[in-house]
Nucleic acid binder design. Structure first.
Lengths: 193, 193
DNA sequence: CGGAATCTTGAAAGTGTTCAAATCAAGTGG
DNA sequence: CCACTTGATTTGAACACTTTCAAGATTCCG
């Protein structure tokens, strides 16, 4: 089960792993399963673990005063799951994270995470990841302040075709900041051309 | 001039600086000035430098197909300026960054930046910064997909009162993803209560 | 003073939302 | 394999929010 992660690590770092380092990762990074609809974190709780998805899909969301859910993030295989603010700062999370399908992951605590940062390959990967994540967030912000609903959808399809396949349309709509009815109409309009 | 940065560094790290480290920072981090409306980066160019604002204010923005500007970010004293994606990945930036007032900063190149990462206090600060930045981005995304124009504005006022004082209203509006006319009306409505 | 930038306001148009009903799809248990 | 339930999607009509455009008012600054 860790093999998938080691592959991922190799792809995302330039430094090889020693045997001790490999052992340390095996020790710190534990298998964990969630069934569909089970929660990884609930809003109000501290997000104690950082997860790496081996198989499955999760959704991070908030619930507003009217009870409407807004999708902050979507994750599938080879993605990292957690509310980073809560995880890093040890504060209560404002997000829920739930499994959208039965999900297998590897998880580590914050202290294990910090421990692993001593492994060169791991810390290098984390930094690359931060950079990528940062760029993606910046892009999403730019999209949300600059684009119409249709443009946001087209951009999303182009950027994350896999997520379209894995999540129902009303979840995609809430990720994009529009009503599911709106997304349905947009798709129809796009087909009619 | 570097004193302001050393203060900042002390506040944002737990490790003290050795004299050699201080010297390295002085060497790598050069003073740089921009007059109002001069650009730090132009869209299409590589963002070669990372800046730390000593005095002044900058604005990061894109221009869409209709020629409308959208404000991606605002920076003032003690903030870092750059298009991080372009800076880190050495790709052309899609953003413009301009001085909104006469601005003094300290700048470093990417290689100087990487060099400075060997300084413990500096790299610790960078990591904290990344975490904070990440949390702020996440918050902005959540706000933009969940909130109405009025809620976004109220949230912004509460989070960044200083920026309200430093930038004109039409810039704030474009940062929040609404027309300046809309923001004007929202403010009036809020006053009438 | 004069010019440039900014802010306000009304009216009209546009975009996206809400709500409810109907349709469609998938999964479960008999 | 069907009936039933639940979840997902589509659609129309009314509505709400936001934008656009144009004009006028205000502020700032040389």
């Amino acid at each position: 089960m860790h093999e998938l992660f080691f592959d991922y690590l190799k792809k995302n770092s330039s430094v090889p792993l020693s045997e001790e380092e490999k052992a340390l990762i095996l020790k710190s990074f534990s298998p964990f399963k969630l069934r569909k609809r089970q929660h990884f974190v609930q809003a109000g709780n501290h997000c104690k673990n950082l997860g790496f998805i081996i198989k499955g899909a999760t959704r991070q969301y908030t619930v507003d005063d009217s009870g409407v859910e807004h999708t902050a993030g979507l994750c599938i295989e080879n993605w990292w799951v957690c509310d980073r603010e809560s995880f890093v700062m040890s504060t209560p999370s404002i997000y829920h994270i739930e499994a959208w399908q039965d999900t297998e992951m590897l998880i580590m605590s914050r202290s294990e995470n910090l421990e692993l940062m001593k492994v060169r390959a791991f810390s290098e990967m984390v930094h690359r990841l931060n950079d990528k994540n940062n760029a993606a967030n910046q892009k999403r912000i730019t999209s949300s302040i600059s684009f119409t609903a249709e443009e946001r959808y087209r951009d999303f399809v182009a950027s994350y075709p896999e997520l379209i396949r894995r999540f129902p349309q009303h979840i995609i709509a809430s990720y994009l900041g529009m009503a599911q009815d709106t997304l349905s109409r947009i798709k129809r309009q796009l087909l009619q051309r």
